[in-house]
């Protein structure tokens, strides 16, 4: 080893009392986590998931080019724009976004604990809550950077060229709803990840068990889902041609967009605050 002298000698040792600011620490954790996340195996899995709608859009485009109707509802041929709307709701909002929320959100802190790398973050002069927030923001950025381009590619493939200008406004709306969905599901499952012992199982049950069932039931249970409020933000009514959708239409009780946004914001903020408080106060016993 080259020298016995201390390494840095920068002497950055302010008086004890407080660590670095929350915002500054959050941005540094964001920087550290985003790079790790973008190249993680989980991101490859995410890219494969969001490639599925693109593949379906390509197939649909090829089929429609032959003059065959890809989707008919009540005997009426549904155009590319309509199919795009169906894909946004069924593929993205009901499957991809909750799935990404579960797999990413639950692992944001749990992976660091399982890999025992959390020690390096917990022994730095930064508030623990900034670790939670920085990782959460990195998840939102990473997920949005993979999912939103996929939506735009599907849009370009599905919507006829002449309708693109007219449909661009609704597209921005769809992108916004997807971003909100990623943020809210991510925050809720992040909370599950720091509070529960088996967050992945609980998350999957919530996203693919509880939510579809609660949406079907009359009464207030659907208010305890995220999909209920996301559905209310959809700019276009979803086409219905099966019994399930008709049943949903009967029990449909849609809040206004403003009310939905406020509830989603409330869920996001509360989930993040609880997750940060849990990590601040919790001890992590790492087995050697």
């Amino acid at each position: 080893m080259s020298s016995g002298q201390p390494a840095a000698g920068s002497g950055q040792q302010p008086a004890a009392g407080s660590g670095q600011s929350f915002v500054r620490s959050t941005m540094r954790i964001f920087d550290l986590s985003l790079g790790e996340m973008l190249w993680a195996r989980r991101t490859i899995f995410m890219a494969l998931i969001v490639a599925a709608p693109v593949f379906l859009a390509v197939v649909s485009r090829i089929v429609s080019a032959n003059g065959t109707a890809v989707l008919r509802i009540n005997g009426e041929r549904v155009g590319g724009g309509g199919i795009f709307g169906v894909m946004i709701w069924i593929l993205y909002l009901k499957f991809i976004i909750p799935a990404l929320g579960v797999f990413y959100g639950t692992s944001l802190i749990a992976d660091e604990v399982e890999d025992k790398t959390i020690t390096y973050l917990f022994t730095r002069p930064i508030p623990r809550r900034s670790i939670v927030m920085g990782k959460y923001l990195a998840y939102v950025a990473c997920a949005a950077s993979v999912v939103l381009p996929s939506v735009m590619i599907v849009f370009m493939l599905m919507v006829p060229f002449g309708e693109i200008g007219r449909s661009f406004g609704p597209l921005l709306g769809d992108l916004g709803i997807i971003a909100i969905g990623l943020a809210v599901y991510g925050a809720v499952f992040l909370l599950a990840g720091v509070m529960l012992k088996r967050p992945l199982v609980a998350g999957l049950v919530f996203a693919f068990g509880w939510e579809p069932i609660a949406l079907l039931l009359p009464g207030y249970l659907k208010h305890f889902t995220i999909a209920y409020y996301l559905q209310a933000l959809m700019p276009q009514a979803m086409p219905a041609d099966d019994t399930l959708s008709l049943l949903q239409a009967v029990v449909r009780d849609v809040p206004s967009a403003t009310v939905s946004l406020l509830w989603l914001l409330f869920a996001l903020v509360i989930a993040l605050i609880l997750a940060m408080r849990a990590v601040e106060s919790r001890e992590y016993i790492l087995e050697q």
């Binding site: 950055q12 302010p14 004890a16 660590g19 790398t117 020690t119 730095r124 002069p125 623990r128 050697q288």
Partner: peptide, 18 residues
């Protein structure tokens, strides 16, 4: 008390890295 970590360096036993 995170400010304490300005003056503390820790090398853990576990073989864990990014």
């Amino acid at each position: 008390n995170p400010a304490q970590y300005f003056r503390l360096g820790f090398c853990p036993e576990q073989d864990a890295f990014y």
